[in-house]
């Protein structure tokens, strides 16, 4: 099978206006992937499915990933000559920039006909708040149907062109996207007879919050723990 770079070049030759980039996987698995621009993702997906050399007729897995905003500190070292004529100094200038966050959908494509794969395709949204639309690949591979619904449910990526985009796992009235990294789960850690350290930490946080609320409240509460509901 072609390498990701070869495939990228072939796709760029076929779709000159498309955005296609190779993403290297630094891990031990070394399965590199292709980053597709959202605009032509559907056409490229159809090409990948129908191309006689690739015939990626089977989309195995769709993973949603949340990449929140990251603060990155760039350190630039520059040599400043000493005006007094002494040895030049090395000055470090630190700039903090915020790398914008985005949501990502990763598709694992295989060929059942030719028994090769995977070709990993990634689509990224512009940000995590308002521009969260990606083209749905369900019309190309039906196996994406439930998986894209799940990503819509848990991550909040809106797949345009999906035939039936509803929440898959949580109820319709739910508003959050719980698999996002900044999701805050409901506080129901009133009482935790448990060996999980992390649960005990949360239970303590709950008790502290309730105690603080009770202290701040003008009217004394009879049963402070049950008033949290």
């Amino acid at each position: 099978m072609e390498t990701v770079e070869q495939l990228r070049d072939r796709l760029l030759a076929r779709f000159p206006s498309a955005a296609v980039a190779a993403v290297t996987n630094p891990g031990a698995a070394a399965e590199h992937s292709l980053l597709l621009g959202a605009a032509q993702a559907r056409e490229i997906a159809e090409f990948l499915r129908d191309d006689p050399v690739l015939r990626l007729d089977y989309c195995s897995n769709v993973t949603g990933i949340d990449w929140p905003e990251k603060e990155i500190t760039d350190t630039v070292k520059s040599t400043v000559p000493d005006p007094a004529g002494g040895p030049s100094k090395v000055v470090e200038t630190k700039t903090v920039r915020v790398e914008p966050g985005y949501l990502e959908a990763v598709y694992f494509l295989y060929s059942m006909a030719l028994k090769h794969g995977p070709v990993i395709v990634r689509l990224r949204t512009a940000n995590r708040t308002d521009a969260v639309t990606l083209p749905s690949l369900t019309p190309v591979w039906r196996s994406c149907d439930f998986q894209e619904r799940e990503i819509f449910d848990l991550f909040g990526i809106v797949f345009s062109g999906h035939p039936d985009l509803r929440r898959l796992l949580l109820w319709d009235e739910f508003v959050d996207h719980p698999m996002r990294k900044d999701y805050v789960e409901p506080d129901d850690y009133e009482w935790e007879p448990t060996a999980h350290d992390e649960v005990l930490v949360r239970a303590k946080a709950h008790q502290a919050a309730v105690a603080a609320a009770a202290a701040a409240a003008p009217v004394p509460v009879v049963n402070p723990t049950s008033s949290a509901s």
Partner: peptide
């Protein structure tokens, strides 16, 4: 009932209160 973030109410206080 299904609420926006959790069940409403999240527990039946007539039956259960944290020990």
């Amino acid at each position: 009932e299904y609420g926006a973030h959790d069940l409403v109410p999240s527990k039946n206080t007539a039956l259960w209160s944290p020990p």
